[in-house]
Design a protein around this nucleic acid. Structure first.
Length: 375
RNA sequence: GGAGAGGUAGCGAAGUGGCUAAACGCGGCUGACUGUAAAUCAGCUCCCUACGGGUUCGGCAGUUCGAAUCUGCCCCUCUCCA
């Protein structure tokens, strides 16, 4: 019997927003939750201690990248991913399915699996649904993902249908080889932007009885309205007693719109990536710390923020760190952006509890002067 | 005082008669970034009333149809010798 359980604490009265508690083999994750991404067994620039300090309760890592380097056997020999990276909180691993999408130039998809060209040395590699699960079992993450194909937008109905059918077969194949009792396995809803395919895929997956369900194939070029519809179409037939995870989404408006539609988990590279590139999400809107005007601005990044960066350092100092290419700048910015999103999630959970999620969403969207991109 | 080397856009540095408003790098400015090939990538960076015009390559004067590139003089810098 797996000790993995989603408990619905409270559903918002006026929306599909859900306050929940995810028991990940004894480690509790309150949902809705935002998960920082640590692709290569590290949330870039942050130590596990810092990740926890910002209020993060679960992080992501990646099958494809760890398979290539250092190799899943090395991680296994280390005693698993948690020991390897010295992080004892819950870890979710993506299956490598996204790399089918992002490394599209260097791959070939067949029924059996996907032939990749390594982005490291160009060597030819083969990843199948079984192999992906085997690697994830060696990594020993808490939550594994089914191996899927993340298709681009737009894609033809024909292709989307064929790909989604294959993704379902892959989900089944992966599930059949998954044997760990202390690792959950999620299925991933694809179906592109076609309602019937999304709904059908969700129903099929629900029937296979996964520990949780991901919504994949969003934020790949479609507009916001389409994306929100895709989420609704995926969630409609997903079981209410299992967690729903919207993959790769992290803009503020997307998080709120996802929660409103019943999403429990999110992950995104956005906050950490744009932080490294000099962009901050703040209560004053988007801010590029590299700009000249901040060179002599001795105020905090975000006066309303309680993170290590905002409590202790000034814009001028971080501007200097960026110009000097000092890593501390990227680290402080990453801490801030993650804390910013996590705080929004904390607020969302509180609002759901009080049956005022929609008001909260409006409040946030009105308060933060971001553009339609949501950051 | 003598002998060499050299002065190119914010800096470094190519270029040595037309294809040069001048490579490239740095710096500077702007933009992008959503299950991370990303401390990355793209554009701009002499001036202007800008699909055109104006002034540039230490200074001045020449040679030439045409000069950053050739000649003369001058100014300045560096190295070596006295």
């Amino acid at each position: 019997m797996k000790d993995f359980k989603y408990e619905l604490i409270h559903k918002d009265a006026k929306s599909e927003a859900r306050l929940g508690k995810l028991n990940v083999f004894g480690k509790i994750v309150e949902t809705p939750v935002f998960m920082p991404v640590g692709t290569q067994a590290t949330v870039k620039f942050l130590s596990p201690e810092e990740i926890k300090a910002i209020g993060s309760s679960i992080i992501l890592s990646n099958t494809y990248h760890l398979w290539l380097r250092p190799g899943e056997k090395v991680v296994k020999a280390a005693g698993g991913l948690h020991k390897f990276m010295n992080y004892d909180g819950p870890i979710l691993t993506d299956s490598g399915g996204f790399q089918v999408f992002s490394l599209a130039d260097a791959r070939k998809i067949k029924e059996e699996g996907v032939t990749f060209k390594s982005h490291l040395d160009g060597s030819t590699l083969f990843l199948s649904p079984e192999k992906s699960i085997e690697i994830q079992m060696d990594l020993h993450s808490d939550i594994a993902m089914s191996f899927d194909e993340c298709i681009p937008f737009p894609s033809s109905y024909e292709y989307t249908k064929r790909s989604t059918e294959r993704t379902l077969r892959w989900a089944k194949r992966g599930k059949d080889v998954h044997t760990l009792d202390d690792q959950a396995l999620f299925g991933i809803v694809q179906g592109g932007a076609y309602r019937d395919l999304r709904e059908w895929c969700a129903k099929e997956l629900a029937e296979m009885d996964f520990d949780g369900y991901s919504i994949g194939g969003t934020s790949v070029g479609e507009d916001k309205a389409t994306m929100y519809t895709m989420i609704e179409d995926a969630i409609r037939y997903l079981p209410k007693d299992k967690p729903r995870y919207l993959m790769g989404v992290g803009a503020v408006n997307d998080l709120l719109n996802g929660i409103e539609r019943g999403v429990d988990m999110f992950d995104c590279v956005l906050p950490t990536r744009i932080a490294r590139h000099g962009t901050l999400m703040t209560s004053q809107g988007r801010l590029n710390i590299k700009k000249n005007i901040y060179a002599t601005d001795f105020t905090p990044v975000d006066p309303e923020c309680d993170c290590e960066c905002c409590k202790n350092y000034t814009k001028a100092y971080i501007n200097h760190l960026f110009r000097a290419k000092e890593g501390l700048g990227m680290r402080l910015m990453s801490i801030h952006n993650l804390r910013f999103l996590i705080k929004i999630m904390e607020g969302a959970r509180k609002a759901i509890k009080e049956d005022r999620f929609l008001e909260y969403k409006e409040e946030i969207l009105k308060k933060f002067p971001f553009d339609e991109r949501g950051f």
